[in-house]
Simulated scan of single mutants.
Amino acid sequence: MLRWFLFPALLAATPVAAQAPAPAAKADGPLILAFGDSLTAGYGLGRGLGFAPQLQDTLRRHGVKARVHDAGVSGDTTAGGRARIGWTLQRLGEKPTLAIVELGANDMLRGVDPAVTEANLDAILAELKKQGIPVLVAGMLAAPNLGPDYRRRYEAIFPSLARKYGADLYPFMLQGVVGNRALLLSDGVHPNFEGVKRIVTGMLPTVQRALAKTRA
């Protein structure tokens, strides 16, 4: 059973002011933009231990010389992501081969109307489509205490937008991690190094399929 009563601690992470990302280091191989919140940013982890560097290392061990650019902002909402997607892409200095969009958990924890969350994510995906960047949507589940109606509306957002934009979908970013204290930091919510490793392992086949499509 998922221990969603632990989830409010996500909001305890002090939001970090969005800063323009450094341009991606140009090199051979696909560039993946990891665009999200604290789960993408590697909250509470040392340099090189978060989602982006672990995904990059794992892809390279599987023969894909990818570069994964961390554009995660702890505490970010879909509104924050919508506000920064344009200049994030502009500052990269290179068009990403694939964008992983992981946003929406903080909206849910604040009880934001799912219609607002959906509109913001729609705008983010529309901008990526406009620039010809394929997308992998990393979905999220709602806390059951928000009620069945909210949960139904919220959880429908991610597969619906993935279908609309022809994006790949990883249904639940924290699959296999939520509720397992061995995979979490002391806050009981954010993944530790092993938790991120579990996320990357679970998501890897979806990332590989998404990258294969870009080469087709």
Rank of each mutant, 00 (worst) to 15 (best):
L92C: 07
E118D: 06
K164E: 01
G195C: 11
Q90P: 05
N120K: 10
L184A: 11
K164A: 05
V189E: 08
P148Q: 07
P134A: 08
V177H: 09
V116W: 09
A143T: 13
F193M: 11
I133V: 13
L92I: 10
A142Y: 14
L185G: 14
I100Y: 10
Y170K: 01
S186T: 14
R153C: 04
L89W: 14
E127Q: 11
I157K: 08
V189P: 02
Y165V: 00
E94Y: 09
A115T: 15
M108G: 08
G176E: 05
N192P: 09
G176V: 04
I133Y: 04
F158Y: 14
G104H: 02
Q90N: 13
K130N: 12
P171H: 02
E127R: 12
N180P: 07
A182K: 10
F172R: 06
A119V: 06
A119E: 06
M108C: 13
L136D: 13
E194Y: 06
V137Q: 03
L204C: 14
A115R: 13
A105V: 12
L184P: 12
E94D: 10
R181N: 12
D113L: 07
K164F: 02
Y150A: 10
I124V: 15
L183H: 08
K130A: 11
K130C: 01
A210L: 03
V200D: 05
R163F: 00
T88L: 04
R152W: 03
A105L: 11
I199D: 00
V135L: 01
F158S: 00
D113K: 09
G202K: 07
T206Q: 11
L121G: 04
I100R: 06
P114Q: 03
L211Q: 10
V116K: 13
R198Q: 10
N145K: 13
E102N: 14
A162C: 03
F193T: 13
D168G: 13
V196H: 15
L121W: 04
D168Q: 13
R153T: 05
A167F: 09
A99M: 12
E102C: 15
L183Y: 07
L174E: 01
D168A: 14
D149S: 15
M108I: 04
Y170H: 12
K95P: 05
E127I: 00
S160N: 08
H190D: 10
V178M: 09
K129Q: 15
L128E: 09
P205N: 11
E94Q: 15
I124T: 04
Q90M: 10
I199N: 01
V200T: 02
N106W: 06
S160G: 11
N106T: 05
G139T: 03
L92T: 05
S160C: 04
K129L: 14
V101Y: 00
V207N: 14
V189Q: 07
G93T: 07
E102R: 03
I199A: 04
V135G: 00
A138R: 00
L161E: 02
G104L: 01
V177Y: 07
R91A: 15
N180W: 07
K129W: 15
M173N: 06
R152F: 04
W87I: 04
A210R: 05
K164Y: 03
N192C: 03
P148N: 06
F158D: 00
V207I: 15
L184N: 11
